[in-house]
Measured scan of single mutants.
Amino acid sequence: VFVDDHLLEKVLELNAKGEKRLIKTWSRRSTIVPEMVGHTIAVYNGKQHVPVYITENMVGHKLGEFAP
C-alpha cells in the first residue's frame, strides 16, 4: 500500500496529539489507511483543495477518487 511519507507523518502526528484539523495535500495517489479515519483531508483536484472527510468505508481507496 502506498502513502506519501509527508502525509502519513502529518496524520500520525495529529493522532498522537489527539487533534483533528484540516490537512492539505497534493498527493491524490496516496491510499487511504485506517490511521486517517476521522480526519478531514483537503485533496487538490488541479484547481482547488476539496475537503474530504475520511470514513471507514474509504480505507483501501485512493484520495484522488474522492476529489473529482
Rank of each mutant, 00 (worst) to 15 (best):
23 I>Y: 01
9 E>H: 11
5 D>S: 15
17 K>F: 06
45 N>D: 14
56 E>A: 13
39 H>G: 01
14 L>M: 12
45 N>M: 06
27 S>A: 05
15 N>R: 03
60 G>V: 02
38 G>F: 09
20 K>V: 07
21 R>G: 12
36 M>L: 06
63 L>T: 05
19 E>A: 09
58 M>S: 06
14 L>H: 05
8 L>T: 02
4 D>F: 01
55 T>C: 14
24 K>G: 02
59 V>K: 07
66 F>R: 02
26 W>D: 13
9 E>P: 01
34 P>K: 14
19 E>I: 13
9 E>K: 14
15 N>F: 02
37 V>N: 06
37 V>P: 00
32 I>Y: 00
34 P>I: 14
9 E>A: 14
68 P>N: 07
45 N>I: 07
50 V>Y: 08
54 I>M: 07
65 E>C: 14
14 L>R: 02
6 H>K: 15
44 Y>T: 10
33 V>F: 05
56 E>W: 12
54 I>F: 01
3 V>N: 03
18 G>T: 04
33 V>D: 02
1 V>C: 15
12 L>M: 13
14 L>K: 02
9 E>L: 13
67 A>D: 04
17 K>W: 06
2 F>W: 12
27 S>C: 15
62 K>F: 08
30 S>T: 05
64 G>N: 06
9 E>Y: 09
29 R>E: 13
58 M>K: 09
36 M>Y: 05
10 K>N: 13
18 G>D: 07
57 N>C: 14
68 P>Q: 07
58 M>C: 06
67 A>Y: 03
30 S>E: 02
41 I>M: 07
56 E>N: 13
35 E>M: 10
10 K>C: 15
43 V>T: 07
19 E>M: 09
37 V>S: 06
33 V>I: 15
29 R>G: 11
31 T>I: 08
51 P>T: 10
45 N>S: 10
21 R>W: 04
63 L>Q: 00
59 V>F: 15
48 Q>L: 10
57 N>S: 13
54 I>P: 01
46 G>T: 07
32 I>W: 00
38 G>W: 07
14 L>Q: 12
22 L>S: 07
27 S>D: 04
31 T>N: 13
13 E>Q: 09
67 A>E: 03
59 V>S: 06
52 V>A: 04
51 P>G: 08
11 V>A: 01
5 D>W: 15
5 D>P: 15
55 T>K: 12
12 L>Y: 06
67 A>P: 04
6 H>D: 15
64 G>D: 05
47 K>G: 10
15 N>S: 04
15 N>A: 05
47 K>V: 12
60 G>L: 08
19 E>Q: 12
48 Q>K: 13
